[in-house]
Nucleic acid binder design. Sequence first.
DNA 1: TTAGTGATATCC
DNA 2: GATATCACTAAA
Length: 172
Amino acid sequence: MQHVISPSFFARECPEAARDLAGKLLCRRFPNGRVIKLRILETEAYCGEADTACHAHRGRTKRTEPLYAAPGTLYVYLCYGMHWMLNISTGREGEAQGVLIRACDGAAGPGKLTKALEIDGSFNGRYLPEITSELWLEDDALPCSVMTAERVGIGYASPEDQRRPWRYIAVY
DNA sequence: TTAGTGATATCC
DNA sequence: GATATCACTAAA
């Protein structure tokens, strides 16, 4: 039985939410009506202002605002001038936590993922329950195990934060 | 290994 | 106002 994931799923500490999100289904209805569902294979947790890898580690800015918003709010931003990164806010409102969705099957890499799903900056700051006709998450209860690893692409973070096992990989 | 790309943050 | 920096990718 398919079950649509509600925002309360994200109302807990980021590493837990990121770990649980691995193996779930990311579902997208395109403007032309076509629907695809991709299994999430890789996520990363960014855990608030104290995490030097998190965009919000220097405090609240216009850009990081969605990370502070209610859990289930999307944080979508452009990297390297061409790739949109898809994140979902977690924790409590006022805490700058988020989960980066790094890979689904058929789309390995956060930039390829958003391209495949046609997700861009227009989704930034949107709240999942308000856009269920375009983007939603499902739990089909397919069992899997989850491996952890160090996060990638965060050479600017402190050495101890770079070592944190906050990357989650679903294994079947 | 390197170029490509543009928004953002941080510094004049 | 200017510049440096990026939670990346494809091509070579």
